[in-house]
Design a protein around this nucleic acid. Structure first.
Length: 132
DNA sequence: CTTTTGACGCGTA
DNA sequence: CTACGCGCCAAAA
């Protein structure tokens, strides 16, 4: 693999970068909106929420992204949350009586270092002009 | 160009 | 524990 065009996501849109990170979450593991935002590095948890709301039919495991309280976030239009929960339970995720999950058990540690480096998320997007 | 539309998180009371 | 306010801003129409 030469350099021709890199598969880096540095030039992708914010939403696409968010989706790319979400795609790294393994089945049965969970990440919070804030966690994804921290990995992306330049957006907020809310941005991640907006991106998930706009995911449409893209191949993204959106169900694995939940809020920092460990529960499935309500959607404005209503409904849909039960489907998300079912999908997760189908992956082995266990919810407690309050409808929350234990991040200690099902939390995702984040992408490995190499993935971050390869995709331009680490140490940070290169300053304007200086692409490696 | 402008307007609309949203799956959050945190501090504070 | 709950309730509320408020900052956040990209993308599509």
């Amino acid at each position: 693999m030469s350099e021709g065009h890199d598969t880096s996501l540095r030039e992708a849109s914010v939403y696409e970068r968010i989706y790319a990170i979400a795609r790294q979450i393994p089945s049965g593991r969970l990440a919070s909106y804030g966690q994804i935002a921290a990995i992306e590095g330049h957006c907020t948890a809310r941005m991640v929420g907006y991106a998930m709301a706009a995911v449409g039919n893209r191949p993204v495991p959106w169900q694995r992204v939940i809020n920092s309280r460990g529960s499935v976030s309500e959607r404005r239009h209503g409904g849909g949350t039960s489907r998300q929960r079912r999908l997760l339970e189908g992956e082995g995720v266990v919810f407690d009586a309050r409808g929350r999950v234990d991040f200690q058990l099902f939390g995702w540690a984040g992408p490995d270092w190499e993935w971050l480096e390869t995709n331009g998320f680490y140490p940070a997007p290169m300053p304007g002009g200086s692409r490696r």
